[in-house]
Amino acid sequence: MSSPVHLVRSHPISAFALLACLFGWSAYGLAAVGLGTNPENMPLGPALAALVVTSCQGRAALRGGGRSLRTWAASPWLYLLAVVAPLLLDVSIVFVNHLLGAPLPTGAQLGAWPEVPVTFVAMLVLVGLGEEAGWTAFAAPILLRRFGLLGAFAVLAPLRILWHMPLVLTGHMPLSIAVLANAGFQVIALLMLQHRRGSWTLAAVWHASVNAFGATFFFSMVTGPDRDRLDLLLALVYALAGAMAFVLHLASGRGHAPGAAVEMDVPDTSPASAGGSHVGTRSGANDSSP
């Protein structure tokens, strides 16, 4: 019988998926036995899962993973774009929602804006870095190198959606955002990683900006049907943005060799190097031999 470490080495992506869900959903298990109420996903779950899987590959792999996490290859202008682009999308969605009947934010509501930078920093550390250190820094380079863009999307988008499903079941997240917005953002994150080698932190900054300006600020200013429509608009906009980004990627001519641009210093977790066969499946996506 294979040891747990050997199984992780042989099936790194499946092990990552299982551990990301196990860690991310741990608060629900604790609540079920009376420890805590109103639980939500633990955003550090994917990062912890990546750390465990990388540690099982050996010290060299752990050092390589650490170097990858310290690679911030993008220019300051791109980081500014990762902050501003989600903000502009949120503001546009608010105005569209107003045209459909929702009230505009009041002066009193907008007066809480000094809290947004503090929220952004908290979201960057807990949600942005916590999630994207797993999805984008660890799993995405491996999958892009082996499967290309579409293959990586076919694995990571369903996994990201599955990971957020407890939030849907507990009413913390609409199904439309869990599916459409996460799928659209997954395309954007993969393309940012491809076009800017090693800059996984762009996805982390974008993710934090979405939460800080949207969910906890602008979107908290409406309730009832207006909020439901706002959530649906957000989901549709991100699905459209992801589709448009993919079309532009193909039009640029870089879609012919989708895995070539990713050369991050990540551990080689291929079955040959790990001493295993091929990786099984997880969350409905085939990740055989990633």
Rank of each mutant, 00 (worst) to 15 (best):
H98K: 09
A112F: 10
F219V: 02
A212P: 03
E263M: 03
D228E: 14
L99S: 14
L167H: 06
P174D: 15
S26Y: 09
V116L: 14
L48H: 06
T269H: 03
H11F: 01
L124R: 00
S288G: 11
F218W: 14
E132I: 04
Y238D: 02
P76K: 08
A157R: 00
A243G: 13
G171E: 14
E40D: 13
G65H: 12
L162K: 01
G242R: 00
P4N: 10
S283T: 09
A27F: 10
S92A: 13
A189C: 14
A73H: 05
M165V: 13
L149S: 01
G36T: 12
I93T: 08
P290R: 09
V247R: 09
L234I: 10
L248Y: 15
G198P: 02
A245Y: 05
D265W: 05
A260V: 13
A17M: 05
D228P: 02
L7C: 04
P103L: 05
H256M: 12
A152P: 07
G101F: 07
F185Q: 00
R146C: 12
L167D: 04
T119M: 13
A102S: 15
F246T: 11
L78Q: 04
P43K: 03
D226V: 05
P114I: 11
G284M: 12
E115F: 06
L110P: 05
F138M: 10
L150S: 11
A20Y: 06
Q194E: 15
G36L: 08
E132W: 02
L236V: 13
S252V: 07
V155I: 15
L180G: 03
L156M: 15
A31M: 11
M123C: 08
R254K: 08
S273D: 09
S55N: 04
A274M: 06
S289D: 13
V279T: 11
L250E: 08
R146P: 11
H172Q: 15
G148N: 12
Y238S: 01
D287A: 02
V279Y: 03
F217M: 05
A154W: 09
A257C: 10
F219R: 04
V279Q: 06
V237E: 07
L110F: 09
G198D: 06
F153Y: 15
F213G: 00
H11I: 01
D265H: 12
A272I: 05
G111V: 10
R197P: 07
W72F: 07
S92E: 11
L104K: 03
S75L: 12
G280Y: 09
A235T: 12
G255I: 02
V279E: 07
G24S: 14
L250M: 14
F219N: 06
A139H: 09
G214K: 00
W113M: 10
G101A: 13
V125I: 14
G198I: 04
L150G: 06
V179E: 02
L233P: 02
S75I: 12
A260Y: 05
L35V: 02
P225L: 06
V125T: 14
I161C: 07
D268L: 06
L81T: 05
G280L: 05
S252W: 02
Y79R: 03
T106R: 11
L110W: 14
